[in-house]
Simulated assay, not measured.
Amino acid sequence: MVLLSTAVAVCGSFEFGSCVGYSAAVQSAISEDLNLSLPEYSMFSSILTIGAMLGAVTSGRTADFIDRKGVSFSTP
């Protein structure tokens, strides 16, 4: 169970890093395809970070509301 929990946590961090890294490498292509200026692209790329902050704030309360035991992998 500890290994599974650790793997899930690591996958989440890896996914977030991949999203941030991917958008940085293709900044010019995204700007050209969507006809975005630098300030517009900055707002576009910050949406990922804003979404991560909102998800972090709401996930704990959601787990409390649903009940942490309801989302665990252990048997009663």
Rank of each mutant, 00 (worst) to 15 (best):
D33Q: 13
A29Q: 15
V20N: 08
Y41H: 11
M43E: 08
V26F: 04
Q27M: 12
G17W: 00
M43Y: 06
L34S: 06
N35Y: 10
A25L: 00
F14G: 01
P39R: 06
L38F: 09
L36R: 08
S37Y: 11
S31W: 13
S31V: 15
D33C: 03
S42V: 02
S28V: 04
S42R: 13
P39A: 07
G21S: 06
P39G: 06
L38S: 05
S37T: 15
P39V: 11
S28I: 12
F16E: 00
G21W: 03
G17F: 01
Y41N: 09
S37R: 08
S18D: 03
G21F: 02
E15T: 06
V20H: 01
Y22P: 00
E15D: 05
M43R: 15
V20C: 01
P39W: 02
V20Y: 05
P39M: 10
I30H: 12
S42M: 09
I30S: 04
L38C: 03
L34A: 11
S42I: 03
A24V: 06
I30T: 08
S42F: 05
G17E: 02
S23E: 05
P39C: 08
Y41S: 05
D33G: 13
E15L: 09
S31N: 10
I30W: 04
A24G: 01
N35H: 13
N35W: 08
S23C: 07
A29I: 13
A29S: 14
D33W: 11
F14A: 15
C19Q: 08
E15G: 07
